[in-house]
Design a protein around this nucleic acid. Sequence first.
DNA 1: TCTTATT
Length: 474
Amino acid sequence: MYIKMATLANGQADNASLSTSGLGSSPGSAGHMNGLSHSPGNPSTIPMKDHDAIKLFIGQIPRNLDEKDLKPLFEEFGKIYELTVLKDRFTGMHKGCAFLTYCERESALKAQSALHEQKTLPGMNRPIQVKPADSESRGDRKLFVGMLNKQQSEDDVRRLFEAFGNIEECTILRGPDGNSKGCAFVKYSSHAEAQAAINALHGSQTMPGASSSLVVKFADTDKERTMRRMQQMAGQMGMFNPMAIPFGAYGAYAQALMQQQAALMASVAQGGYLNPMAAFAAAQMQQMAALNMNGLAAAPMTPTSGGSTPPGITAPAVPSIPSPIGVNGFTGLPPQANGQPAAEAVFANGIHPYPAQSPTAADPLQQAYAGVQQYAGPAYPAAYGQISQAFPQPPPMIPQQQREGPEGCNLFIYHLPQEFGDAELMQMFLPFGFVSFDNPASAQTAIQAMNGFQIGMKRLKVQLKRPKDANRPY
DNA sequence: TCTTATT
């Protein structure tokens, strides 16, 4: 249950104002345009904040609430210096959280104690979070605790850890059913306290029912988390997992497709031709590849210098693995796999942001192509200036023929996972909507291999893309 | 056995 907003907003917000949608913002303008900054009021007043003001992170915000909806809720505790809903830099998508700075430090403390986990906003499953932003914190002080007994509660964990410092947060990780996953996060006030707890507790005991001794270590950084998720995802697709053997062609084929995508996206994005989402995806893939080289992931994504089929991966039963387009250190699969001659090139060229939606009337697919070609010059659209940070000096290397393949060579893939649990994963997968081959036989081969390929709970639907002029009786 | 997000 949640407390009525009207009471928290001091009567200034009613249900009608809370349901007001914030969808009016466009990606390009998101951020500063919607930011509530330097509280309006007397224009002659220069907004000031305390020298030791605290920037708060606000979490568990319904995505239909924007700054103006949130303002009344927080104003109750003091004058707001700045309030910004976080949005995805490319899509403008509301991230469900915000930053809030009060003019006075005291206001932040009041808001935190009054609101943090004290109510649940409409439509949310978890209580609102009001706490100092990560940027306010001093060093790494959050621990991951593993190998707990599933019966142990937050209080049990607290008792175990309180001797080593001040515990700011203690959370048992639970599944949807509320059952403990046997692990927890414990956040201390300082890095030193956290380190002391590790020294004293890691491996110190084995909880009843646990399979090994207590694990106490610093929690993953965001980067590590991203990597783990990508690897989990890759595992689901049979890319890196040696267990892909039973899948035969499927695993290897998916791997080939992924590698082609990575290579192509990287090259196109560096050339400045592609849309920002694809550039983002390319950056993620590059990060992934870089980490592979550090040995954090298994072999197959490692750029090959022309060798053999990676161990543990069975060469596909399909007639050929398409030969890669080698760019930016990706050479994809070896030129020869399974002793067969390297086959025709495969290339992925269309990028469509919403592949799971049916390609109806306006034909977004064609728009996507048009968009790619439209930017076939060196300049970036102004709104996408961030990309030039990621790729400071885009080299002019765009393979000439990498456009849509001939009729009968282009696939449209349905049922790609839209939600892999968070927006980043979604973004990473969105560009995987199109694959084109340079001849119909290869396209058919890919259909045979990949149609019905299961990813999580869904199966890919892979069929020939409809001809440009075909009727679209969806 | 690494959460619900951190410009």
